[in-house]
Computed example of a mutant assay.
Amino acid sequence: MSVAFAELVTIMRRLRDPQSGCPWDLEQTFETIAPYTLEEAYEVAEAIANGDRAGLREELGDLLLQVVFHAQMAADEGSFGIDDVIGAINAKMIRRHPHVFGDAEIASADAQTDSWEAIKAQERAAKADGVPSVLADVPLALPALVRAEKLARRAARVGFDWPDAGGVLAKIREELAEVEQAIAEGDAGHIAEEVGDVLFAVANLARKLGVDAEAALSAANRKFTHRFQAMEAQAGDAFPALSLAEKEALWQAVKREE
């Protein structure tokens, strides 16, 4: 363990000391800290997207703190400690890279992906009480778009998939027609269900085209934000009162400037 990492572990241990620790840190549980863990992971991703290396260094530190915090809470209750966390990931990485740490031969990144998934399937089977599901360990806490891609990718690995992107496009058209039908029926629950089906199908289209759906949507969000704020800047205080046609004209002007 490096000196700096050992110091971080010591700092967290002191923060959680029942006699002299920080009241806030002592009150925390796995459940209360989990949202911060997710938030820090997103901030790491944002720093990467912004090309902000100084920010990335800071955010990685914040994320590392979350790992140490969870491990310390587990140690406090006698479940496991930070050494167990590190030991488990070391063992997993060695187990999942037999071509590096063993005698297996893997010729390409695609072959490594297949090997990785095969080893994960073996691990799932070892943990399962009954028939193991390829979907069993896709985390519920993932953002819905990311989870949709992962679920579909797992299903595709056992042959449940469209042959090409054209099949997904046809499915999207089918789901859009069902949305229109649900709207005509006026059933709010049915509308929500069918809109969800459209989003799931679009996530599958991204997967079939080799597009990261979450990254693509994030880029679209940034583009929309940039264009909308440019519209606001051009119109000033008058923006809210503009007609829809005037706002659309501003939107098109901003697009042309790009």
Rank of each mutant, 00 (worst) to 15 (best):
104 A>F: 11
69 F>H: 15
75 A>I: 11
105 E>S: 13
146 V>A: 03
89 I>Y: 13
68 V>S: 04
153 R>K: 08
111 A>E: 14
145 L>C: 04
97 H>L: 05
56 L>S: 01
149 E>K: 09
48 I>C: 02
42 Y>S: 05
32 T>G: 02
119 I>C: 03
33 I>Y: 08
59 E>R: 11
67 V>I: 14
46 E>D: 12
151 L>E: 01
67 V>C: 08
43 E>T: 00
112 Q>A: 15
158 V>S: 04
59 E>I: 07
119 I>T: 07
36 Y>H: 01
65 L>Y: 13
147 R>F: 01
58 E>K: 08
138 V>Y: 03
129 D>F: 14
108 S>Q: 09
31 E>Y: 04
99 H>A: 05
78 G>C: 06
153 R>A: 02
147 R>V: 01
87 G>S: 07
133 S>V: 07
131 V>W: 12
105 E>V: 15
68 V>M: 04
83 D>Y: 13
99 H>S: 07
158 V>H: 03
95 R>I: 00
148 A>P: 02
130 G>F: 00
104 A>R: 15
66 Q>Y: 05
62 D>T: 10
68 V>L: 05
127 K>N: 12
156 A>L: 02
75 A>Y: 13
109 A>C: 06
103 D>P: 01
144 A>K: 15
44 V>L: 03
115 S>A: 14
140 L>A: 10
153 R>F: 00
49 A>R: 11
64 L>P: 03
47 A>Y: 05
129 D>Y: 10
94 I>G: 02
94 I>H: 12
41 A>V: 10
121 A>R: 15
147 R>S: 03
122 Q>H: 06
102 G>A: 07
50 N>F: 00
93 M>Q: 13
30 F>Y: 12
112 Q>F: 15
157 R>W: 09
109 A>L: 13
31 E>F: 08
107 A>K: 15
141 A>T: 15
34 A>K: 00
155 A>F: 08
111 A>V: 01
69 F>G: 03
133 S>E: 04
50 N>S: 01
51 G>T: 07
157 R>D: 11
132 P>F: 06
100 V>T: 13
66 Q>M: 15
